[in-house]
Design a protein around this nucleic acid. Structure first.
Length: 934
RNA sequence: GCCGCGAUGGUGGAAUCGGUAGACACGAAGGACUUAAAAUCCUUUGACCAGUGAUGGUUGUGCGGGUUCAAGUCCCGCUCGCGGUACCA
């Protein structure tokens, strides 16, 4: 019987659904195992073949773990809030909820066709009030917590209040508003005036990881700096723990490295510099305390608090105009134009070691948000200071022996110190240590660790996001009572900001908080005594994705985020698969979020993702036709790719993207091309053999007349006409072929282009293996059959455990070939092959399993064990002569002693032929190969 | 600039612990079956040289060195490509 993949796949998908085979129980004697995919944002374009790559890998692993007897949690959901749906709503007036639900429905149908073993009953959507209830809940808890530096964990803000009451007499005399303002400086979720990335085109602020090179990651619009009052999360408080936690998790080195860089720990010192003629000193941060003798000027960030204090009357005007210029420069302009700019403040600082006077400047190469926003400049040993010094003609004092600073600074941390008072003669490393000791002893400064990681800006001036459970009383924010959650997103009539510039929620009419009756009421009723305005911003995309993995554990629980016992059973995600693009966003935020919940005792593990694998991106493979634009061109003639470099056509053709779905193995479907777009209706061709339609008007009916298309690797996108829809692949080749082929393309972590050429190979394999199940016999398998089978078991087990899925497919093909060559149709062999194939190609494996006479599902089978006995294969192989010596290659059992190896060599018939005496030297690689040098 | 990763036939890629480089697949060429096509099956396929031939030899994993009986794999120095990050003091 033919391999009717459509019938097989539909039948078994239906059977699995009916029997609820993928339903996962929270209570089981089996060991738990949690395999998670990064849930997708359901975009309007639907899935393309690149998206399921990671899902297929995690599905294979889940099924494997399940066959090994684990209780596997493998859920899927949707990151449903986000900008595209809202932008679409602004353009078309369609409610984002409607388009989002439509997109989700499409995603689910696409995912189901591929045959994943998700427990769909555990689906979560971030825009579902039952889900964002717990996003809001976490926010309230963050608002009600502060970070205790001594205990290094989050504690209830009430403890801080108690401490203030006990220790600070001023506390009781403060008004409520003053108290609230003071607490705001400690809360983990806090409101602050901060310099933010404002994107005028999107009409919202963005977090640091949502901006790249001065442009928004989504949309690529310019971003400028603005000071705004925003909700922030004190992620920076967790910087040390986020860094340290990396040592305890099994992630790729490159991803850990990216996070380490993003967190940016740097060990240095804070030092106080007195200002000439003032009492109060100011503080700088440096990692090169050893260079303090070479400080020739100081620099403040334009936004620094110190600026006001040090600007003299004479310099005031010049400084003001410089600050004004900085303010109006966008981030992008600042990056594009790296010219040295700055202004003298008129004041001088006193070097605490030399007592010399040093001028204080302002320049935007110093950042307000890092360290103290002020630096001591050492032009001889810092390239940025060097450029500044050259520009403003400031002195440059070399501090390291032999360093030539006439052309450029010497930034390396090596060499012997000179011109450096107490440090002279020391190596740089020792000099840094010595100076730290010195400043600590003398009270000039202290050792300090700084982090590059900033607090996350948490407000978005958007509609389609989680509303904040916050209302404002006397200008200060208050949280809604937890029992009143979720605070549902209100309806609005338009999704744009209001005319007065308020965020879109300003358009909602029912959007005020009645404190007394604890409910949302009409805005018109606001009286500021019992009825107050609600927050108009919504939360950013990463809010909903920061703890979704916890919700899958217990998604129907309406009384808590996740039940304690359930959490204690699943604990954490054992395997997380997703793209590297989330390295500095989602993967930082969710680790932070989880650690916060851990501090509160709500979850039992402080790292959410035990092991993490990054799948590579699948790029598109575009095809081109080549329009003739040389002499006499009518714009309607296309030259075959193999001819475009011939003298006749060189530089006379223009490549045009052609839809990859009408190209097969780089051969253009002429008819489909003519029907593709009106402009190609009358297209004519120069074929690969150089003939053309002009020679013979009926030429295309001859098979040998082919038009070959060129190709290139590009991003998969609509505009390149290179998008391949998994639905089409499933329809033409089947889900099992798609799954196998995606794995076969190359290593999981590597980026690789999708190339439909070649899919026939794996499809052919499935057809061949299917044919082996035509008749199943109950005879005993032979030793050769068993050897073949156990080689396969060993290989597949190793592959799955090491995520080397791409090398499994050849192993299956080889085994299929061997078994077919042995005419093997033994049930014992075939049913084991079905189990091995089940993670990769579950539908055909299920059908094969049933052909072996089973009435149960293959997903409930047991993963086979390797019997080493069948793998033994002793004997001599490949005696090779080289350079007058003879090298014998023997395959010998493991754990053989040197003497035994020598004995085995001497006794072996083959090798004995070559041996005339005792070998000079025997080199042994256990279990593998022996070289004997005579 | 800094950090990380990579480079193997016409193509995707394999070689898992330093041990037969090119598995497996695609493509290509030739053949079988067929009225024909599709499908299927078989053979060949890194390059070069010799031979009618089985076969034999040389060369070969981006470039230049090194370690080793043995290097795609380890070490040093480059070139190119990809990714991250960028005035972080």
């Amino acid at each position: 019987m033919d391999y009717n993949f459509q019938e097989i796949e539909q039948q078994w998908q239906a059977e699995w659904e009916k029997a609820e085979v993928y339903k996962v129980d929270n209570h089981s004697d089996r060991e738990p195992f949690y395999v998670l995919d990064m849930f997708p944002y359901p975009s309007g374009a639907g899935l393309h073949v690149g998206h399921p790559l990671g899902y297929i890998a995690s599905d294979i692993y889940s099924r494997y773990k399940r066959l090994q007897g684990f209780n596997v949690l493998h859920p899927m959901g949707f990151d449903a809030y986000g900008l595209p749906a809202e932008q679409y709503a602004i353009q078309t007036g369609q409610h984002p909820e409607k388009t989002t639900n439509e997109n989700i429905a499409r995603y689910i149908s696409q995912l189901k066709k591929i045959g994943f073993c998700y427990d769909w009953d555990r689906q979560v959507r971030t825009c579902d009030p039952q889900f964002y209830h717990w996003t809001q809940y976490a926010f309230i808890r963050m608002f009600d917590s502060y970070y205790d530096a001594d205990q290094q964990k989050a504690r209830p803000i009430s403890e801080l209040v108690a401490r203030f009451e006990a220790e600070d007499p001023a506390w009781k005399t403060m008004s409520e508003k003053e108290q609230q303002q003071r607490l705001m400086q400690y809360r983990i979720a806090y409101l602050a005036d901060t310099k933010v990335n404002w994107c005028p085109k999107l009409g919202t602020v963005l977090a640091n990881d949502e901006v790249s090179e001065g442009l928004s990651v989504r949309g690529g619009y310019p971003v400028e700096q603005r000071v705004m009052r925003q909700w922030c999360l004190r992620v920076s408080a967790y910087a040390g723990r986020l860094l340290e936690g990396l040592d305890r998790i099994d992630w790729t080195e490159s991803l850990k490295e990216t996070q380490k860089n993003w967190i940016g720990r740097s060990e240095g010192a804070e030092m106080r510099f007195n200002i000439k003629g003032q009492d109060e000193p100011f503080t700088i941060f440096t990692t090169r305390a050893d260079t303090v003798y070479g400080v020739t000027f100081m620099v403040l960030a334009p936004e620094s608090e110190y600026v006001k204090r040090v600007v003299t009357a004479e310099q005031k005007e010049e400084v003001e105009s410089y600050l004004d210029r900085c303010r109006h420069r966008t981030e992008r302009e600042r990056i594009a134009d790296r010219k040295v700019t700055g202004v003298f403040t008129g004041s001088y600082a006193i070097n605490p070691l030399t007592q010399g006077e040093i001028p204080i400047y302002i320049s935007d190469y110093v950042l307000a948000g890092y360290g103290t926003g002020a630096i001591m400049a050492v032009p001889a040993h810092d390239s940025r200071d060097y450029a500044f010094a050259k520009h403003f003609n400031l002195p440059i004092i070399p501090l390291i022996e032999g360093a030539d600073v006439s052309e450029q600074s010497f930034d390396a941390k090596e060499g012997k110190m000179i011109n450096s008072g107490i440090l002279n003669g020391l190596e740089v490393k020792d000099a840094i240590r010595r100076m730290k000791e010195y400043i600590t002893e003398t009270g000039i400064g202290r050792v300090k660790v700084n982090y590059r990681l900033r607090d996350a800006i948490f407000s978005r001036q958007r509609y389609w996001g989680e509303p904040f459970p916050i209302y404002y009383k006397d200008g200060m924010p208050y949280t809604l009572p937890e029992e009143c959650l979720p605070l549902q997103l209100p309806e609005v009539d338009k999704f744009l900001p209001t005319e007065s510039g308020e965020p879109p929620l300003g358009n909602a009419t029912v959007w005020a908080w009645d404190e007394e009756h604890r409910q949302v009421v009409e805005k018109s009723k606001i009286n500021h005594t019992t009825i107050f305005p609600l927050e108009l911003c919504t939360m950013p995309g990463f809010a909903g994705s920061s703890a979704y993995y916890l919700r899958y554990m217990d998604n129907h629980n309406s009384s808590t985020l996740v039940d304690k016992d359930v959490n204690a059973y699943w604990r954490q995600v054992n395997l997380y698969i997703g793209g590297t693009e989330h390295a500095t966003g989602h993967l930082i935020y969710s680790r932070f979020w989880n650690k916060f919940l851990y501090d509160l005792g709500l979850v039992c593990e402080d790292e959410p993702f035990k092991k993490l694998i990054n799948q590579g991106m699948i790029q598109g493979r575009s095809n081109f036709v080549y329009r003739y634009i040389g002499e006499g061109a009518t714009g309607n003639l296309y030259v075959s790719y193999n001819l475009i470099d011939t003298p006749e056509y060189k530089d006379k053709v223009q490549p045009i993207h052609v839809n990859v779905n009408i190209v097969h193995n780089d051969i253009l479907d002429i008819e489909a091309f003519r029907n593709w777009m009106p402009e190609f209706k009358d297209a004519r061709f120069i074929y690969s053999d150089g003939s053309s339609d002009f020679d013979n008007p009926y030429s295309q009916i001859f098979a040998e007349k082919q038009y070959i298309c060129g190709w290139a690797i590009e991003k998969m996108s609509k505009s390149m006409f290179n998008v391949v829809n998994p639905d089409d692949v499933v329809k033409n080749f089947g889900a099992d072929t798609l799954r196998l082929y995606e794995m076969f393309l190359g290593p999981l972590e590597m980026s690789k282009p999708w190339d439909t050429n070649g899919i026939d190979g794996v499809h052919r394999f499935l057809r061949k293996i299917w044919n082996m199940y035509e008749t199943v016999s109950d005879d005993e398998p032979t030793r050769d059959e068993l050897r073949s089978l156990h080689k396969l078991i060993k290989k597949i087990t190793w592959d799955v455990e090491n995520f080397s899925f791409n090398t499994s497919i050849p192993a299956f093909m080889i085994a299929q070939n061997e078994l077919n060559g042995l005419k093997c149709n033994k049930r014992a062999v075939l049913e084991t092959v079905a189990i091995l194939l089940a993670p990769y190609a579950p539908h055909i494996a299920e059908a094969m399993w049933h052909r072996c006479g089973h009435t149960t599902f293959v997903v409930d089978a047991q993963w086979p064990e390797v019997n080493e006995e069948y793998l033994q294969e002793d004997g001599v192989k490949y005696p090779v002569q080289f350079n007058g010596k003879v090298r014998f290659t023997l395959t010998l059992p493991k754990d053989m002693s040197k003497e035994d190896v020598e004995k085995a060599v001497m006794q072996n018939e083959e090798t004995a032929k070559y041996l005339t005496g005792t070998p000079k030297r025997v080199i042994v690689v256990p279990g593998k190969i022996v070289n004997i040098v005579l």
